[in-house]
Nucleic acid binder design. Structure first.
Lengths: 143, 143
DNA sequence: CTCATTTGTTATCATTTGATAACTAAATAT
DNA sequence: ATATTTAGTTATCAAATGATAACAAATGAG
């Protein structure tokens, strides 16, 4: 296998993924939420409960800046802290009901766009696609 | 096929792709180049020659802002305008030699990280992976 | 018990990015 | 030939993001 060629394909592939997800999320505008705040919300949604350090590390934000942005999200009542009884410096962060409702809406919109994008595919193509995602997830992404 | 489930997998998948590429590009710091400017460079690298409007559209930047950032890249002599003789309002943008050299370095670093990430895979797993990328590219991404 | 480390906070400042208005020059349409 | 549209520029302002210093409180190690 020509690993150089595979790398080329990988670059093209990741570029495409970024482009497509960019296009899909582009129009989703939530009032009083900035891009970084949305990324934080998305991260919490997918990974909750999370700590502030995890947000900081995974999103490549400094702890002070993460703290600042989280504060705004908490003020908007989209998420909340749940103090860890075992280590009171730490706390888990979760979406509130309001935050959950918001993210459900967002994901519903995204799902619509996703469905549009796949609705020309046959049943067997969908299965191929699922398998392809599975392979990349296990062989390459989850490490 | 449960399309809702496929969507869930898709979300997880795109999140992972973002995370991995984020981690791979994280340490790549080029002097006097901001994040947006790097994205522009990357876009030019992959798609050159491009017009300013294409940069603007694909990267979701306004034309004035694209113009401003491109100007800085040109001042740094990383790319150059080539005026279209057929329509002198337009111009193609290409990397200069300096820009090409820089991006070659960057991509070489990226390729190293990529190789690290795949070097535990067997030959047949690599082929599976290539095939998976191919499927997603043709069935879902290229539209 | 004391000191170092971990986890997060607050404040502040610089830089980057986004948005918009007013503009030019070339091309196209009527 | 004039008007309109297209492609890009310049200037300016506001907002978001990044970086850093100084801090506090809880935990852990010796």
């Amino acid at each position: 296998m020509d690993k150089g060629k595979l790398f080329q394909q990988f670059v093209r592939f990741t570029t495409s993924v970024h482009q497509v997800t960019n296009d899909m999320t582009k129009e989703i505008k939530i009032e009083n939420i900035t891009t970084v705040q949305y990324k934080i919300l998305e991260f919490i949604t997918v990974s909750q409960p999370v700590t502030l350090s995890e947000i900081s590390e995974c999103l490549h934000l400094s702890l002070p800046n993460s703290s600042r942005e989280l504060k705004k999200l908490i003020q908007s009542q989209l998420c909340e802290k749940i103090i860890d009884p075992n280590d009171r410096r730490k706390f888990d962060i979760r979406l509130t009901e309001k935050g959950t409702a918001l993210m459900n809406e967002v994901f519903q919109q995204l799902e619509l766009k996703f469905q549009e994008r796949i609705n020309h595919l046959t049943e067997s193509e969908l299965e191929e696609m699922e398998e392809a995602i599975q392979i990349l997830q296990t062989k390459f992404l989850d490490r």
